[in-house]
Design a binder for these strands. Structure first.
Lengths: 195, 195
DNA sequence: GTTTTATCTGAACATTTGTTCAGTTATTCA
DNA sequence: TGAATAACTGAACAAATGTTCAGATAAAAC
């Protein structure tokens, strides 16, 4: 048999990407087979090739979509007029946004080595663009005398690394709410870069 | 032919582990084959099984050795009498030690998902023991009124995550020396947890 | 109601995988 | 010198891999 019921093209594609994202995040790109992905969607492996040219493309598309969504979401985030408020907005946005798509974040950080050089450069450029957003806030703050860091680039990387750490331990069922976690990290970031 | 010259058992073992560590760190455990490891040492794949029972054991032994070395090295580190000095010692030690074995650190953080449950628990216990070392310093500091953090456990995780970020960008040939990097991070950590 | 098309199956392909093991050689021990 | 052993080769194994494609079937178009 073939098509079991209705037209599936517009729903099968997203389901494949969702299954791939979950499996890549859990087991790693190299450890997941096309047959496993297909099985999660209820397909045979061959059917995947109606939606992707090969396995690597599946990974690249997930990473690209994630990075672009991240940049778009931050651009759409309302920003206070003062740098201190901007930094707080970034911290809370980053924690909240990344926790809600931890699978995509894990992949974007762990599977860079499975990309071809071209694809790597593209994803890396996106990441740098995001880091530049934070560094811009820090630079403004330093100029205004609100922040004090010896190196805004390193400070930006340090802050992002610290915030990403939340992903390794946060659970929805844990003792702290999302907002409480945000506030704890915001306190530490504010003090770390403050005058 | 077989043995080409001299007795190799005591030198081949370490060379295999070194090759495995480098390849696992660069391409990921699942993406590296036993034949690649053997080829890096100048052996056939079958010869590896004189030194390891299987591929997973090779990974576990690397991770265990790394975590135990880390705990031993920190235990041997001289510690000042005051908590502030202790925290500084931890920050500088962590950056320096981890940068000097970035391959082992990468593996210990990225390949946890390739471990069997038993092995995972063992490595995780080691990691927690290391985190507890830092949390102990923070707790003492809070009691003495030298530090101010709402949650010592989260603060410890945040500090370690921030320090680990160095691994993703530091290069020996970069514009900053190791000591300069240590100092920049120590400044941020000190302010982040300070009163 | 017939033809066309989108969607999927199922089998096949050449490679590669981890692992085993009988045999081979260089070294060590008696 | 001869026997024993440590260290390795090279071939083999079944299983799994990414990918292709002819054919089957349901839905859509006419």
């Amino acid at each position: 048999m073939a098509r079991t019921q209705g037209s599936h093209s517009d729903i099968t594609g997203p389901r494949i990407r969702a299954a791939a994202q979950e499996l890549f995040a859990r087991h790693g790109f190299a450890a997941v087979s096309m047959r496993q992905i297909a099985s999660h969607v209820g397909l045979q492996a061959g059917a995947l090739y109606n939606y992707t040219s090969d396995k690597q493309s599946l990974l690249v598309e997930l990473m690209q979509a994630h990075m672009e969504d991240l940049l778009t979401a931050w651009a759409a985030e309302p920003k206070p007029g003062d740098v201190m408020g901007c930094l707080e907005a970034f911290v809370r946005f980053h924690i909240r946004y990344n926790l809600q798509r931890s699978d995509a974040v894990f992949i974007a950080y762990m599977e860079l080595r499975n990309l071809t050089p071209d694809n790597f450069r593209q994803i890396e450029a996106h990441r740098r663009a995001y880091e530049d957003q934070l560094e811009g806030v820090l630079k403004d703050g330093v100029e205004q005398g609100v922040f004090d860091v010896p190196d805004t680039k390193i400070a930006a990387l340090a802050v992002i690394a610290m915030l990403n750490g939340v992903l390794t331990w946060y659970r929805d069922s844990g003792r702290l709410s999302l907002v409480e976690v945000e506030t704890i990290y915001w306190d530490m970031v504010r003090k770390a870069v403050g005058v």
